[in-house]
Design a protein around this nucleic acid. Structure first.
Lengths: 239, 239
DNA sequence: TCAAAAGTGTTCGTCCTACACCCATGA
DNA sequence: TCATGGGTGTAGGACGAACACTTTTGA
């Protein structure tokens, strides 16, 4: 059925939706914008926008990410395609196919409204439901995907600043998974994985308050985690 | 940037591309169609087609799958969204955004050409490269995804007929991964996972030739695999 | 009687878990 | 000096890899 006919296709609008996640004060937050117009006026929604004629969906997502967060350089941030949502009725006005992305940020800056009138804010996950459109599902899918990828990739460092302590890294896991981890075992596991983190030879940083100062690490070159760091006894992960 | 304006969007064509994989004679095969027209006339390509105005990408993928394979009932087959390919130059004629799917089939029927003039055939993976468009990459992504999901889901049964032996199931893993597995350990691992397979109480089936007849099993209700069945020592899996 | 594939048993090492314990710091 | 978090040590158990062995069939 690859019978292309230049006039056989129906026009679709193609957008990107961004599930931008970060950690603030030990809690998972998502970047949300408040809609000012119908449909779903007054509802919160994921940031996003149209894909332009000369850019890929990935380009559009990174452009929107920069606009929404106000960050000057988003080139190093983790951005990952989630999946595409294409139900015919997902936008009541017209046929919109949306490519959803998950983005992970360390050190969240306060968002300014971008070039748009709608206010953008970091809200604690899962946020004020229901969100507009099918954004509840997209956000939940993003959380699930990130949680799963923490197990077998080095993704957790994407939530951390350039230099971080193992305690901060562990807090990423504990916050996203919602479970406590054994600190000594976590430490050994991370350090035993070549390329996950590498030590910073500078002075140890304070832990923000009481306690022994922790050693600093930066992200290593590895992307995969062998063997994986499995979630403790949380049965029933979807496929 | 959720500033919808009914006339602000550029029209895109939205298609689905299918990486249909199966096992024939112990080798991984992909369903490919030969293009009859430019561009890429004479090249092999993945089956696919346009998403219609009133259907989702998933609906379109299943419809195309039925058309291309000639199967009357594709409702039970495994169909999974891979990712969306949206590079502006991926189709030289116009802007086409393609949602790619991976489909897994047991018992491959000979494909007839569907409603199209192009011939469709099962060809041994990875097939006659280069394929048309960016289909080499889509097919490789599908293989990688399927190989990874064998580790932590019960996906392997999607390659098997309704009733199968553990030897057949093991051959799925060995073929997709390209590695040999220890038969006794594989058996124990599968049987120790509740809901992966369940025994069929009928008589044992012959193994097709010599050897002791094997017990028959059918797929169980589980989808996830805990703990995972990791690939042996194949480092460097992408994220 | 031999080859081939299914199925069972067993050993050994490795990794994970769980804790106990010490260290360094701020209040 | 006490609470807090970082870092090290260790015993026990679970799991997996490797391989020997038996069983049942077709040639």
């Amino acid at each position: 059925m690859r019978g292309y006919d230049k006039y056989a296709f129906e026009p679709f609008a193609v957008t990107v939706d961004l599930a931008v996640l970060t950690l603030r004060a030990g809690a998972l937050h998502a970047l949300l914008v408040e809609r000012g117009q119908e449909p779903y006026a007054g509802r919160w929604a994921l940031p996003g926008g149209f894909v332009r004629p000369q850019e890929s969906a990935e380009d559009a997502a990174r452009r929107e990410l920069a606009e929404e967060t106000g960050l000057a350089d988003v080139s190093g941030l983790h951005l990952e395609q989630l999946r595409t949502y294409s139900d015919p009725g997902r936008d009541p006005r017209m046929r919109v196919v949306s490519v959803a992305f998950a983005a992970l940020l360390p050190d969240p800056p306060e968002p300014h409204g971008g070039g748009d009138a709608a206010q953008a804010r970091w809200l604690p996950y899962p946020g004020p439901r229901p969100l507009a459109f099918d954004h509840d599902r997209i956000l939940a899918d993003a959380h699930e995907r990130v949680g799963a990828k923490l197990e077998y990739t080095c993704l957790a460092t994407a939530f951390c600043p350039p230099e971080f302590t193992l305690g901060e890294l562990r807090q990423v896991y504990e916050t996203v998974w919602g479970t406590a981890l054994d600190r000594p075992n976590f430490r050994r596991k991370v350090l035993a994985t070549p390329g996950f983190v590498e030590p910073v030879t500078g002075a140890a940083r304070l832990t923000g308050g009481r306690g022994k100062p922790a050693a600093l690490y930066r992200a290593g070159g590895a992307t995969a985690l062998h063997p994986p760091l499995l979630r403790p006894a949380t049965e029933g992960r979807p496929s």
